[in-house]
Design a protein around this nucleic acid. Structure first.
Lengths: 174, 174
DNA sequence: AGCACTATACACACCGTGTATACACCCGAT
DNA sequence: ATCGGGTGTATACACGGTGTGTATAGTGCT
């Protein structure tokens, strides 16, 4: 629900219509992948259904109609709760890389290859992010650093796992 | 598609029915959150639709009917491609934490609180994982280490961001 | 009769993508 | 001068993947 909450947060600054929200979102959060228009409206309709936003009039000004949406009290409460609640690190436990290694071992394929492919891909990504970070503003730098820290974490895990492959193979084989 | 691929991988060991797959999955990959039955069958039906598995007979043995599924050649090819393709680190760029901090700053709330809440939750999770890691087998240890490395990465980012909050606030305010 | 276990099916909700639609405005070609 | 096409604004809708919850149905045990 991160995107829904982000849109709600933007609506706290005043009522807006969908197209406008998309641009505001891209400017603030979408540096690395702009929001699709479709997603804006489907998200808005869900927020509307759940009573977190309300329609605030239809302007038929220059160009096509604009449906303005305003955040409701329930919406503000929801943003507040979202900001006050820590993100759960479940995704870190649902580890696709680990699944790949185990399946490679189970099926007699090379688990080392799996690790190597991932490592070299990550190293390439890190070079690119380091470049992007160099000529970005502080916001860009923070986003890149976040990704870089996590890529480093992946690399540490890849090394650790590579060093334990024999023992893991024995354990999986049982 | 991680779960679909994991099920395909398990089917490489021979045809199985859904209930059996669920248990095999939980044993190998589901330590930290067992697979819901519903998901097994909906995933299987998608694999069937895409021709990656095929029905391999219905046994009406003890108890209810069992539909056995076998992996197809297309399925094996698909597993192979999955194992040979590195995972994209996009999720690290779509950073919910960053969104929270920016929205807190935009709405005049305390971004420090957001960071603090997340940090103390992470520290608690890390203590728990360290405990779990101590009395697990190698597979558990690797899973816990993966999560721990990423939690550390989050913590590093939280510290970095906390130290830059004033500058970020100025940049966002523009 | 009630409960637990095995096994599947189905309806539903969320999230995201792609495509169609509609209006307005500008600009060049006829 | 006007016709048509491209561009920008704005929304709606249908669809696909993913995951959850619930219903169903048979078997065996107590």
């Amino acid at each position: 629900m991160a995107i829904g909450h982000a849109l709600l947060g933007l609506l706290e600054g005043g009522p807006r219509h969908g197209y406008d929200l998309k641009r505001a979102y891209d400017e603030r959060f979408g540096q690395h992948r702009p929001l699709a228009y479709g997603q804006v409206y489907s998200t808005l309709s869900r927020l509307l259904k759940n009573g977190l936003v309300a329609e605030a009039g239809v302007e038929a000004g220059d160009g096509p109609e604009r449906r303005r949406y305003a955040i409701t009290d329930a919406g503000v409460t929801d943003v507040e709760r979202w900001l006050g609640t820590p993100e759960k690190p479940e995704p870190y436990l649902q580890n696709t890389l680990y699944s790949k290694v185990v399946l490679a071992l189970l099926s007699g394929r090379s688990a080392t290859d799996v690790l190597d492919v991932q490592r070299s891909a990550h190293l390439g990504t890190m070079r690119e992010l380091t470049r992007r970070k160099a000529d970005g503003d502080l916001a860009d730098q923070l986003i890149c650093d976040f990704a870089l820290f996590h890529l480093e974490a992946d690399l540490r895990w890849l090394e650790l796992t590579a060093a334990r492959l024999d023992k893991l193979a024995a354990e999986v084989g049982k």
